[in-house]
Design a protein around this nucleic acid. Structure first.
Length: 295
DNA sequence: CGGGTTTGACCCGCGC
DNA sequence: GCGCGGGTCAAACCCG
């Protein structure tokens, strides 16, 4: 675990039609999403920068509604517009995307699945607390990583609470929970059986606390997506400008829900606060933005 | 000893 | 109704 550089390409939702993929109400704003997914508060930065073996990342966002049937969400997806098709439901996705990506360079895409169906169905109705079901939308954010290590360092502390064998795969799926009290974020990690170098990480929920300072010193937000991490060709934003992921996210949501497609102007001007991140001067990050949300 | 991991059992929803 | 598979629990175990 020491080689590779991380190259990430954010594309867009592989499998869905932009016009129907989202139900904005079901998604949290991007920052939340990222935060919940450890992507913002330095987590991914950690992963990208500090995880030696990480070489490529593929990401996706899922807003989950538990109510949807998997057939619903996955079903029609039929390869959204010429992009890589990536079935978001993880159970069946394995083969699907392994197939898709094996042999090709993996591109990072912001995949939004309305819940990825996969686990949403059962979610948590453990016999114990049946009174309270956490049915509501559990925001999910998943990404594919080409890494030799399964559990990427993301700044948060996790406790493994389970492991299951995955169908048709020699690699097990591990379940982690954030160790911070009252934080219900979960993370699921599994490796592609077709391409063992690929790891699928899915975050569920959002952290209710800041990243536990510590682990790796301080990681500046700007380093979140480092130049080496991102490569993509898409609509550029003004380099050096700061933006809010939330804005982007919301814009995306809007565009998804029927509104006109977003434009960088929108993205930058909208403010949904929370954290704002500085775009690196080299403009790399700017590339990622539009591509993440335009679709 | 506290905190994390392992692992088999259990729960539950879904499809047949 | 039943079996399957995913997700979670929790006791046992490990480790610093």
């Amino acid at each position: 675990m020491t080689n590779s550089k991380t190259t990430t390409t954010l594309d867009s939702l592989p499998n869905y039609n932009s016009s129907q993929v989202f139900d904005s109400s079901s998604y949290m704003n991007f920052t939340e999403c990222l935060q919940g997914s450890n992507l913002v508060n330095n987590s991914l930065a950690t992963a990208f920068d500090l995880s030696p073996s990480l070489s490529e990342v593929f990401s996706s966002v899922e807003g989950s509604h538990q109510s949807r049937s998997s057939a619903d969400q996955v079903g029609d997806s039929g390869g959204g517009r010429g992009r890589e098709t990536l079935v978001s439901t993880q159970n069946s996705s394995e083969a699907a995307w392994a197939e898709e990506y094996s042999g090709k360079s993996i591109k990072t895409s912001l995949l939004q699945a309305e819940d990825g169906g996969e686990s949403s169905k059962k979610v948590n109705n453990k016999g114990k607390k049946k009174g309270e079901k956490k049915d509501l939308k559990v925001p999910r954010f998943s990404f594919i990583t080409k890494s030799e290590v399964d559990h990427l360092e993301d700044g948060y502390r996790w406790r493994k609470y389970g492991q299951k064998a995955v169908n048709n795969s020699p690699y097990p799926r591990s379940y982690y929970r954030c160790t911070t009290q009252k934080c219900t974020v979960k993370k699921r990690v599994e490796r592609s059986f077709q391409d063992p170098s690929i790891v699928i990480t899915t975050y569920e929920g959002q952290h209710t606390h800041p990243v536990p300072t510590s682990l790796r010193g301080n990681l500046a937000p700007a380093r979140l997506f480092t130049p080496s991490v991102l490569t993509t060709n898409s609509i550029p934003l003004a380099a050096g400008s700061s933006f809010s992921y939330d804005s982007l996210f919301m814009s995306h949501m809007n565009s998804k829900s029927g509104a006109a497609s977003i434009n960088s102007q929108n993205i930058i001007s909208n403010t949904f606060h929370q954290q704002q991140y500085q775009l690196p001067d080299n403009g790399i990050l700017q590339d990622i933005v539009p591509s993440m949300f335009l679709n």
